[in-house]
Write a protein that binds this DNA or RNA. Structure first.
Lengths: 166, 166
DNA sequence: AAATTAGATGTATATATTTGCACCCTGAAT
DNA sequence: ATTCAGGGTGCAAATATATACATCTAATTT
């Protein structure tokens, strides 16, 4: 089955986006709590699926003085340090993660979002970035030779608009 | 009692240091596993205490492709996928160009031209070129191992006469 | 010295999370 | 049309983790 399936997947995608948003904006200490929030928002699924969603989103759980343990998104562990400052919204609609290997980076997105994000990256026309190739949920970013991982990261660190508010 | 107590506390401190070290250098997926490592290292305590230690260290647990879920230390989440950041919009137009990096070349084209050009390149069946991957406006050309940049450039020049390096 | 206090820890238990298995759905292949 | 293949889910059981409660120890106070 090709990743292009956006039919029943869309529901899942919606759910993943919502899960992420909730985690991002609230201190959630367990899946049941999160599940009930989602249920109230009209979603209908089980805790088992939520567990899988959280894994898919690479959500982590850290200790929190106030609520014991809370979920956090990758890159936002700042909350555990109290760096509540200005954690710029690292999240674009659909953006999931980024990894580096050799002189390139691989961005994972929710199904269907790769080309949109890649388009924005291309739009930056960064010197560091030679080009991008987007599939359905993956973007390959090729860095210019001599560009360090930090440079590439810094270049990429400036693209993804703010997320939508529901 | 002040935190300065260094007597029997020393043991705890030692333990905490060890716990941190182990988490830092290994992919540990659960407390039992960690506990047995510590036990082998001469420590003697229970899972409950370990749970408390982890909380004290603000250790987090994230998903890991290899081991399911692993512990990470704050600030050490480099292992955690995705240093999520943002990508900002910048309205620009791409241009035709070719660049080299590592053992590959990246060709940028006007939107929609990538596959066409890639098709031509593929058609050359150059020995130097292992393959190409085309997006909408980007082509990634993978060179055979041992092929110099000049060789690759020469091969590509045949396919794209109007090229000009930057 | 006795009483007091607070952190550390074990035990047992409660709570939370993950996962094997079966099933369903949809696109791809025959 | 039929078969196949793979992802997504629910259910229930397996695992993993947190914590209430009782102790113990060492430092502090009286």
């Amino acid at each position: 089955m090709h990743p292009e399936c956006i039919f029943m997947q869309m529901n899942r995608t919606q759910r993943l986006l919502e899960v992420r948003k909730l985690i991002k904006h609230n201190k959630i200490s367990n899946q049941e709590e999160l599940l009930s929030m989602l249920t109230m928002n009209g979603f209908s699924f089980t805790q088992a699926t939520l567990s899988r969603d959280l894994k898919y989103l690479k959500a982590g759980k850290i200790s929190d003085e106030e609520k014991g343990h809370i979920y956090v998104l990758p890159g936002e562990e700042g909350r555990q340090q109290g760096n509540h400052d200005e954690i710029k919204d690292a999240v674009t609609r659909g953006y999931l993660s980024i990894d580096y290997t050799g002189n390139m980076a691989v961005i994972k997105t929710l199904p269907g979002f790769a080309s949109g994000i890649a388009y924005r990256i291309d739009g930056m026309k960064s010197f560091e970035i030679l080009g991008t190739i987007a599939g359905d949920d993956t973007i390959l970013i090729i860095a210019r030779e001599g560009i360090s991982r930090q440079d590439l990261h810094r270049a990429l660190t400036k693209a993804i608009p703010e997320e939508e508010s529901r």
